[in-house]
Simulated assay, not measured.
Amino acid sequence: MMPRPDLLKDIIADLRMAASFVTILPVASSKPAADGAVARATWALPVAGLLVGLAGAFVYKVASRLGLPPNLSALLALATTALITGALHEDGLADTADGLGGGRTRERKLEIMRDSRIGTYGVCALILSFGLRWSALAAIASPSAVALALCAAHTAARAGVPAFMSLVPPARPDGLSASAGSPPGRSVAIAFAVGTLVLALALGPGKALVGLILLSLAGLLLARLAIRQIGGQTGDVLGAFEQTGEILILLVAAAFQMGR
Rank of each mutant, 00 (worst) to 15 (best):
S216F: 14
F130Q: 06
Q229F: 04
A136H: 04
Q229H: 11
A163M: 06
L93P: 10
A180K: 15
R260W: 05
R40Y: 05
L225V: 02
Q229P: 02
G67C: 09
T105E: 05
L250A: 02
G232N: 12
A254Y: 04
A149F: 12
A152V: 09
L50W: 08
L212H: 03
S20N: 04
A191H: 07
P46T: 00
P32N: 06
G103T: 09
A191G: 02
P184V: 07
A138I: 11
L51H: 00
R224F: 04
L148K: 12
L8D: 01
M2N: 09
K61Y: 10
E90N: 03
R40A: 09
M258L: 15
Y121N: 05
L78I: 11
T23R: 08
S182P: 00
L220I: 10
A63N: 02
A33I: 05
V252H: 07
I249Q: 01
L88P: 05
M165I: 01
D98F: 07
A156R: 09
D98W: 09
L75D: 01
P170M: 11
G86H: 06
L150W: 06
G259P: 00
G67N: 08
M113V: 13
L251S: 07
G99Y: 11
R108G: 04
T105R: 13
L132I: 14
R228F: 00
T96W: 08
T244L: 15
I247E: 07
A34T: 11
V161F: 03
M113T: 10
A153E: 11
A163Q: 10
L201W: 11
S116I: 13
S29Y: 02
R260M: 00
E246N: 10
G56M: 11
I213S: 07
L126C: 00
D10H: 09
